[in-house]
């Protein structure tokens, strides 16, 4: 019973905060709503017995990604309202259609009934321990590649954001016009 209440609370709050993200005219409201939605999604992960994923969601998304967005907003003018393109019926239909397509793709293997656990969850072992065992035995190479990818992304981000940090915006425009 408590699980049911928790699921519906998290589900409705997540949908509400993500609706605020896509409809709000103010970038700061949008970012705050995104942060709250991420935290609520980590609650769903805890309900699904994916404890480690929930913690990663909290640390990486609400910790790192939202902080990065907040830092990037220093550069942009976030006080003025954002203009939006006109929405039509077609857009609603397209987004609903693509979402249903994604669900069909993900549920098709289950419909065939030939799903068997490749790396089964061990009973009596914590989720973090289980994840660590699988990650460092079966997924070691993707893990290392992801580490290199994050390093490349970090260096790229530093170089791109830090380039001409002291330069004036107007000077850069003049340079572009030459």
């Amino acid at each position: 019973m408590i699980e049911l209440i928790a699921f519906y609370t998290f589900a409705f709050l997540t949908i509400a905060s993500f609706m605020v993200v896509v409809t709000s005219k103010n970038a700061l409201y949008s970012m705050s709503a995104l942060a709250s939605g991420m935290i609520l999604i980590s609650g769903l992960f805890f309900l699904l017995n994916a404890d480690f994923l929930g913690v990663v969601q909290l640390i990486v998304y609400t910790g790192a990604v939202i902080a990065l967005y907040a830092f990037a907003m220093i550069f942009f003018d976030t006080t003025k309202d954002i203009k939006e393109s006109k929405s039509s019926k077609m857009i609603f239909l397209l987004s609903a259609f693509s979402s249903i397509l994604l669900v069909l793709i993900m549920t098709m293997p289950m419909a065939s009934g030939e799903v068997s656990a490749l790396y089964p969850v061990h009973q009596g072992v914590g989720n973090a321990q289980d994840v660590g065992m699988v990650l460092f035995t079966k997924y070691l190479i993707p893990f290392e590649v992801a580490a290199v990818m994050l390093l490349v992304a970090m260096i790229g981000g530093i170089i791109m954001a830090g380039k001409k940090m002291d330069a004036n915006i107007n000077e850069m425009k003049e340079e572009l016009e030459k």
């Binding site: 990604v65 990065l68 967005y69 992801a146 992304a153 981000g157 170089i159 791109m160 954001a161």
Partner: peptide, 11 residues
């Protein structure tokens, strides 16, 4: 992937 996408994209 999302974390690196954000770093590169924001840069």
């Amino acid at each position: 992937i999302a974390a690196s996408e954000v770093a590169i994209g924001l840069g």
